[in-house]
Amino acid sequence: MTEQPILEVKHLQHIYMKGTPLEHHALSGVSLKINKGECIAVIGHTGSGKSTLIQHVNGLMRPQSGEVVVDGMNLSDPKLDIRLLRRKVGLVFQNPEDQIFEKIIGDDIAYGPFKMGLPIKEVRDRVKWAMEVVGLSFDEMKDRATYALSGGQKRKVALAGVLALRPDILVLDEPTAGLDPRSRNELLEKLKTLNEQEKITIIFVSHNMEEVAYLAGRIYVLADGRNLVEGTPEEVFGEADTLKKHHIGAPDTVEILGQLKAKGFAVRPNAYQLEEAAKEIIAVLRQDGR
């Protein structure tokens, strides 16, 4: 491919508390190559280095060894404009609702744009756009108090607070952890819209294979700070044995189809999307009934 990747990570290493008895290797050579407009899932067991990896993407951590290049900006460059980088890459932490500090929703979402020094009209446009994108009505909600929101709504406010920076790349750490099923599905839909319609490159870390199957176009699996498997969901979920060895489950759909296949039914085991899988199963049932 001749296209320049929007994010390239080469042999990234990171050691916490280097040179002390508590030394801990979080990353021991991870590489990623992500093109503009992709939706990428990073999965792996707790302690596989996912969180450390994504903190490198917007310069909260600098490479100890290896390279991180975001849209032509090399993070090892000491003269790097970190503010510019952070406008390019929006990072949404786990439980981002904790970071809301303003009393009024509109003010909290406007915090980032104001810090960028934008004129108030531009700030307002961005807040409006961000709120509408995450599904909060600008006119109704902007003057409401933040304390009275539900958990799911708070998370939308926090997400809008990052989106208002208008990043090209959105990085999310466990975006749906702790949400009720309804808010979760809603949030996943919004992320899909962001990726498909607003053309924002999305990188997300997740433990939930269902949402990985729903959102991701490509998957990187990490284990012990190294790349384990990568590829499209079909390819990755096809490596069921490798995943199992590293205690990473596949989506329920893949599990069910795999077991059906093992029992001798004619199903495609990599039809991981919920609807496809349902079709496969219905087809089996029809054959059976005949």
């Binding site: 909260l60 981002p96 904790d98 810090k115």
Partner: peptide, 16 residues
């Protein structure tokens, strides 16, 4: 740890 996370999250939003 919470504080570290908060500092990082707000820095991502442009805090100074």
């Amino acid at each position: 740890l919470e504080m570290e996370k908060m500092m990082k999250a707000q820095a991502s939003r442009g805090a100074e």
